[in-house]
Structures are given as structure tokens and as C-alpha cells.
Design a protein around this nucleic acid. Structure first.
Lengths: 229, 229
DNA sequence: CCGGCACCGTGTCCTCTGGACACGATGCCG
DNA sequence: CGGCATCGTGTCCAGAGGACACGGTGCCGG
């Protein structure tokens, strides 16, 4: 290896901001730290990048190890590298952003005896390192992206009602939407498959279920179609 | 330092995609490599991150060192970390994205005897490492961002004509725009200061000069205004 | 001096989109 | 069988965006 590389090197980690949605709120997955620094504090799941794995592989591995979690949607968020962001020394972290269907991911005990739990994104405990910044950045990204890419569906069960979908947007965007206009617009896109099923076990009139048509979206996307709100 | 950190570490670099605009084309700044690997190939300016500087500071420093360049607009683009992207070993690079006013940056000889030059973004030589991917990512970002943030002005001289501005958008977006609609829309935003000056040394009727009003934009932005194409 | 050339600068019309807005239908429960 | 909660639907209006053409101005060359 060239002499060029014999400088001291920073350590490199990945951290994941995993969002999920339940009936009440938008949630983020946190892990309670078992060791110093910030022992006992809550933090984003993450860890060191191995020499032979890509950054995204590292993110997936950490999610699997720390929360027994697999996710369909995982994208790079931002890289945080302030020299003093870790008290142990120079650590640069590549943050990732993931969406999971909370309904299908009941957390399993983490393999390394750390506690994992979902918190409302509007009400998290004090976080370790600069993870509050990372979370804020991720929220901003989610808010921005959900409007012009159909990623919101990653947060819902495969079959969902239009009300659920609308609640999703209202929660993420932090504003109310008009039901009629919302339905008009989303149905006009012709990306939802109307199923011959209605929701079960509700104590009022049951709503029709829909399914997002990924194939159709891919096609339309190629043809220059743009999803928007 | 904790034992946790005694894993082997990747090297970390920053690379910069610097865009400039001249009368003909959108340009990108490249540096010819003086050492192996890829000796003689053109590459993005960049280099190793020092242990005591932030990522953005590293990017600015490299731009200064390799091209004598300062830039107003510098933002993080993406982090590239495929295990085999550098033949010398594991090197992760944090790519940055910069815009400069080409009219005011005649390149000075680089301090470390490497050659620096501007190339049309549509016609670059074969690049070192995965820098072609980095450039493609940057172009995509520029195309996306220019429409909803007033960053295009960073590519123009402080005083410019509406035709120059329109040509900028046409070049970046790779499509033609209608002159009357473009002027109507951009002037309606009320972000351009109309000057009592016209361009000089043209062999036809001279066009009026305008200046972008950064202050006004900041105010409007706070008030919830959204710049859009 | 005059014509040609190149670019500057301007307004109308039409379509479509987006937002405001209310009520009858359905199904469960007590 | 009445009450309650949610479902599901259509109209109207204003504003934005896109299509579209021509007279004005200034330089240059003959």
C-alpha cells in the first residue's frame, strides 16, 4: 500500500434512523447503550464498518444484529464528521435512513443484550453523540421526500385504507389534509389497486382496502411520470 | 481510547465536484493525477481528511490547495464506500458539490504541480476511481436542486441578464424554455433587482442587467416562500 | 446613410390543477 | 331500532402554467 495512506485514520461507523408508523404516531427505533461513552443513554442503532463490506451492507448488518430487523427501504442520509462528535476520538458516521412496516416487525430481543424500543419522533429521550442532529436531518428528509416519491407505502401494511394513508401524510407532514381532495388526487394517479376487501374488526362502517402497485409505478416512472403528494 | 476502536480502519477522503458555467457549456473542474494509481488520469479534486478538521473544512482546503479556489456554495453530496473502489485498499470518500462563478475564477497553477482544467460535463475524459459515478450523482443533484432552490445564481456573475439566466436553466435542465414565460415567472418572484445598467461590448441591442437579492430571498424563505423553477 | 441582422422585451388566452367546501350511506352497538 | 362513528362522493372557483408573435433597439457593413 502506498505511503500516501500512512496518515492516522478516523474510525468509520454507520448509524440508522429507522422510522415506523403505528396508530398513534411516527416512531423511531432506538437502542439503549450498554457501554461507555453515554452508557445507559438511548442512541441510533449502528456500529463500525468492516473492511470488506459496503456501507449499505454495514447498515443492514447492524439493523439485523441490533434489532433483528430487515427493511425494504434503506437509503443513505448524510455523513457526520465533526472532529469532536465522539469523546473517544475521531469517528465519522455515515447515517442511513430506513422505513419499516411496524405492523410486521415486533421487535425481538437484540442479540447483544442491549434494549431496543420504538419512541415517538416528537418525544424522544436525550440521545447519545450527535444523534439528535441525525434524527432531525432524517425527519427533514422524510418530510421532503414523502411528497414526491411514493415511499410512504413502506410504512403501511401491504393492504391499507385510504384513511390510513391520509393519516400517514398528515402525521409526517404535520398538517391536515382535506379528505376529498386527498382521495381525488391519490386515486387519479392510478397507482392503487382497489381490493375486494374491507378492513376487519372495526366498530363502524368498514373501509375498503387498497394495495400499492409497485410495478405500475416503475413503468410510469420510466415514462416520465412524477409522483407528487 | 476504548478497545472498541482497535479494528482496522478505512482511509477517508473528500472529493469535490465543482461546477462552473461559461458561454458554451456547463463545466466541471478536474485534476490530472501525478502519481499512481491512475497516474495521468483525470480525477475530481480531493484528498485525505485530517484528524482535526471537519469534512467540509477538508473539502475547502483541498479546493484551495489543488486549484486555488474558494467557493460560496459547498454542500455534501454522497458518501461512496464500495470496498474495491480504490486499488490501494479500503478508502471511503465523502463527495462534495460546489458551484463557482467561472467568470471570476481563472485557474491558478495548482500548488502541487498537478494540472487543473475545466471540462464540459457532457464530454469528460475517462476518470480515475469511481469518479464518473460521483460526477453523475452530482449532475443529478444539480438538475434536481436548481429547480427548487435559487442556487443557479452561484454560477453566474453578480450582474447578469435574463437571457444568461435562462441559458443557465436550459443548459442544466437540458431542455428549452419559453422566453416570455420564463421572464414572467422569474420576475414575479420579485427576487431580482433591476439595475440601471446594460451589458457591454455586445454587437446588438444590449440587455438589462439584474442582480439576485439574497437578503430578500432569506426573508421570503422564512415566511414560507418556496422558490420554484 | 441606410438596410440587415441579431437580440431585447412585452401580453393574451386557454387549460388544467389545487383548494374550499357538506352530506347521505353504511355498519356496528347497545 | 336509534345513535354513533366513519365511509365515500362532486362542484365551483381562483390561480398557475403553457402556448404563442411581433415591434423595438442598437450595431455593423456596404
Amino acid at each position: 500500500m502506498s505511503h500516501t495512506y500512512e496518515y492516522p485514520r478516523p474510525a468509520v461507523t454507520v448509524d440508522c434512523v429507522v422510522f415506523g408508523l403505528d396508530e398513534e404516531d411516527l416512531k423511531v427505533l432506538l437502542i439503549q447503550r450498554g457501554v461507555e461513552p453515554y452508557q445507559g443513554r438511548w442512541a441510533l442503532p449502528g456500529g463500525f464498518v468492516r473492511m470488506d463490506e459496503s456501507l449499505e451492507d454495514a447498515a443492514r448488518r447492524e439493523l439485523e444484529e441490533e434489532a433483528g430487523l430487515r427493511t425494504s427501504h434503506l437509503e443513505q442520509l448524510y455523513t457526520f464528521g465533526a472532529p469532536d462528535r465522539d469523546p473517544r476520538g475521531r469517528v465519522i458516521t455515515v447515517a442511513y435512513f430506513a422505513l419499516v412496516k411496524l405492523s410486521q416487525h415486533h421487535l425481538q430481543a437484540s442479540t447483544d443484550a442491549r434494549e431496543a424500543a420504538w419512541f415517538s419522533v416528537w418525544d424522544t429521550p436525550k440521545l447519545a453523540f450527535d444523534h439528535a442532529d441525525v434524527l432531525a436531518t432524517a425527519l427533514q428528509r422524510l418530510k421532503g421526500k414523502v411528497r414526491y416519491q411514493p415511499i410512504g407505502f413502506e410504512l403501511l401494511p401491504p393492504k391499507f385504507t385510504l384513511s390510513q394513508l391520509q393519516r400517514l401524510y398528515e402525521t409526517v407532514l404535520e398538517r391536515e389534509l382535506d379528505k376529498r381532495n386527498f382521495r381525488k388526487k391519490i386515486l387519479a394517479m392510478d397507482l392503487l389497486e382497489e381490493l375486494d376487501e374491507v378492513e376487519q374488526d372495526v366498530s363502524h362502517r368498514a373501509a375498503r382496502l387498497y394495495r400499492f402497485d409497485h410495478k405500475k409505478y416503475k413503468q410510469l416512472e420510466k415514462a416520465g411520470f412524477n409522483f407528487e403528494l
